[in-house]
Amino acid sequence: MGKPKNDLLQGTLALLVLKTLARGPQHGYGITLHIQMVSKDILRVEEGSLYPALHRMEQDGWIRAEWGSTENHRRARYYRLTAQGRNQLREEEKNWERLTEAVAQVLQFA
């Protein structure tokens, strides 16, 4: 299975998920809704990449999952940020800022 298909995309997805979870525990569906809503429908997270990503982040110890119930009393698997995840989020945010700055500079220069 090796490396993810697209590092940038994967990294971005992780950043979005971590950021979403920084607000509080959320289940997979909630994460997609939140990202879609906040990005005003520009970013749509594919379920096909969301779940592998979530499980990978869980293995890395950034997030931890627990079963809980939703407002509508439905069973769902909630993801929560760990301390390690919080550090990771800070890192990824920094990386993201650096990246966007760099891209902006390249665009300006050209």
């Binding site: 289940h27 997979g28 569906y29 509508n72 439905r74 069973r75 769902a76 698997r77």
Partner: peptide, 12 residues
């Protein structure tokens, strides 16, 4: 179970 709960929520 996780995927089913996702599906059901979206359906709802």
């Amino acid at each position: 179970e996780e995927l089913r709960s996702h599906l059901e929520m979206r359906m709802a």
